[in-house]
Computed example of a mutant assay.
Amino acid sequence: MAGDIPAGTVHQLPDDLRAMLEDRPDLLPLWTALTPLGRNEFICWVEDARQIATRRRRSVRLAEELLEGRRRPCCWQGCIHRTDKAPGRWQQAVLVDKEWR
């Protein structure tokens, strides 16, 4: 079953999120129903956390947002790692100006 869980367009599914989805049969169909870009946004959002505690909170929130019917993470500027489109204004600040840190 581990190989059946789809990832995002740029990001691979990290082991901790894979384990969460395997352990929560209520989440797996919701995750699978997301578009590859939607899954990518959630993965990027979780992986962007700089602290382990933040990553854990985001993983819990990911589950909550899936159950709420959300298709993308709330309050997220979007994946800055995509190469299929030009970055938006905020993403440009992150990539070039490094204003986020």
Rank of each mutant, 00 (worst) to 15 (best):
Arg50His: 14
Val46Pro: 01
Gln77Ser: 07
Gly88Asn: 11
Gln92Ile: 08
Pro36Ser: 14
Pro25Leu: 12
Phe42Gln: 04
Cys75Tyr: 11
Gly38Arg: 03
Glu65Asp: 12
Ala7Thr: 01
Pro25Tyr: 10
Ile5Thr: 14
Asp97Gly: 08
His11Met: 00
Glu65Met: 11
His81Gly: 01
Pro14Ser: 07
Leu21Thr: 00
Asp4Cys: 09
Trp100Gln: 15
Ala63Lys: 10
Glu47Trp: 05
Leu66His: 00
His81Val: 03
Trp31Pro: 09
Leu28His: 10
Trp31Asn: 09
Ile80Cys: 00
Leu67Ile: 13
Arg72Lys: 09
Leu30His: 05
Ala19Tyr: 10
Ile5Pro: 03
Val60Arg: 13
Gly8Ile: 04
Leu66Cys: 01
Ile43His: 01
Ala53Ser: 15
Cys79His: 00
Leu21Trp: 08
Glu99Ser: 10
Thr83Asp: 13
Ala53Cys: 12
Asp23Lys: 14
Arg89Ala: 09
Arg56Thr: 15
Asp26Pro: 12
Pro73Gly: 05
Ala86His: 06
His81Asp: 07
Val46Asn: 03
Trp90Val: 05
His11Ala: 01
Pro29Asn: 09
Gly88Arg: 05
Leu27Trp: 13
Cys44Asn: 02
Pro73Phe: 01
Thr32Tyr: 01
Leu17Val: 15
Ala2Val: 10
Arg101Tyr: 12
Phe42Ala: 01
Lys98Cys: 09
Trp100Phe: 11
Ile43Ala: 06
Arg89Asp: 03
Ile43Met: 02
Arg56Tyr: 13
Gly38Lys: 05
Thr83Met: 11
Arg72Gln: 02
Asp97Gln: 10
Arg57Asp: 14
Pro36Thr: 13
Arg82Cys: 04
Leu13Phe: 08
Val46Cys: 03
Pro29Leu: 02
Leu28Ala: 13
Phe42Thr: 02
Gly38Pro: 04
